[in-house]
Amino acid sequence: MPVLASVTLRTRDAIKGIWREAAKFGAVGALAFVVDNGGYNLLVFGLPGGARGGPMSTSPVQASVLATAAAALFSWAGNRYWTYRHRHREKVAHELVLFLVANGVGLAITAGTIFASRHLLGLDSPLSDNTARVLGWVLATLFRFYAYRRYVFVAP
């Protein structure tokens, strides 16, 4: 029985730790989502109620890349100094390179959903763009959570 109790306690503590980490990761991600989607919509569609589109209305994939890159920088700072503050590396440059690689894959996932929506399905409305971006964000977020834990912010 003591072995079972020990395993149960360790499992409970591990799950509690992952949930706490996932909650912080989610909070940083939610704010990064606002930066990303807000930036994208401003770049492509302009200010709400504006008569014309945004400055990148004819370049939605590039706008997606730019908005996602800005959100990634925000996310790195939030995750490094809050979510994973106890796990970050001594060599900031090495950590940042790994972070950027993981986010490059995430960026490709998000931009890929816009590309598929616009160029493969022929959809170009704000609803279809934002639906494609949300789908891309979900897929990219699952990948990033795994990559951050496994490769970027490793325990010292």
Rank of each mutant, 00 (worst) to 15 (best):
M1I: 03
M1E: 09
P2V: 10
P2N: 09
L4V: 08
A5C: 01
S6M: 13
V7Q: 07
T8N: 05
L9Q: 13
L9G: 07
R10C: 09
T11G: 11
T11E: 10
R12N: 07
R12I: 14
D13V: 03
A14C: 02
K16H: 11
K16G: 11
G17K: 00
I18G: 03
I18W: 05
W19I: 12
R20V: 15
A22I: 13
A22G: 11
A23T: 15
A27S: 11
A30K: 00
L31K: 01
L31I: 15
F33E: 08
V35F: 10
N37K: 01
G38Q: 06
G39A: 05
Y40R: 00
Y40W: 04
N41V: 06
N41S: 10
N41C: 08
L43Y: 03
V44Y: 03
F45D: 07
G46P: 09
G46E: 10
L47D: 06
L47A: 13
L47E: 08
A51Y: 00
A51H: 01
R52D: 12
G53I: 02
G53R: 03
G54Q: 05
P55A: 05
S57K: 09
T58S: 12
S59H: 13
V61D: 08
V61H: 05
V61K: 04
V61L: 14
V61G: 09
S64A: 11
S64M: 04
A67L: 01
A71R: 02
A71D: 10
L73G: 15
L73F: 11
L73I: 03
L73K: 00
F74T: 10
S75Q: 07
S75D: 11
A77H: 08
Y81I: 02
T83P: 02
Y84W: 13
R87P: 00
R87A: 08
R89A: 15
E90V: 15
V92C: 03
A93F: 04
A93P: 01
A93L: 12
H94N: 10
H94K: 13
E95W: 03
V97I: 15
V97H: 02
F99K: 00
V101D: 14
V101Q: 14
V101W: 12
V101R: 07
A102L: 01
N103D: 05
N103Y: 00
G106C: 08
L107F: 06
A108F: 11
A108P: 09
A108R: 09
I109W: 11
I109Y: 09
T110H: 06
G112D: 08
G112F: 08
T113M: 06
I114D: 04
A116C: 09
R118W: 00
R118H: 05
H119W: 09
H119I: 04
H119D: 13
H119E: 14
G122V: 06
L123A: 13
P126Y: 11
L127T: 06
S128T: 09
D129N: 07
D129Y: 07
N130E: 09
T131D: 06
R133Y: 00
L135T: 05
G136K: 01
W137L: 10
W137C: 06
T141W: 08
L142K: 02
L142I: 15
F143H: 14
F143K: 03
F143A: 14
R144F: 14
R144T: 15
F145L: 13
F145C: 12
Y146F: 15
Y148M: 11
Y148N: 11
R149A: 14
R150Y: 02
R150N: 08
R150W: 05
Y151P: 01
F153E: 05
F153L: 01
F153T: 03
V154A: 14
P156H: 15
P156A: 15
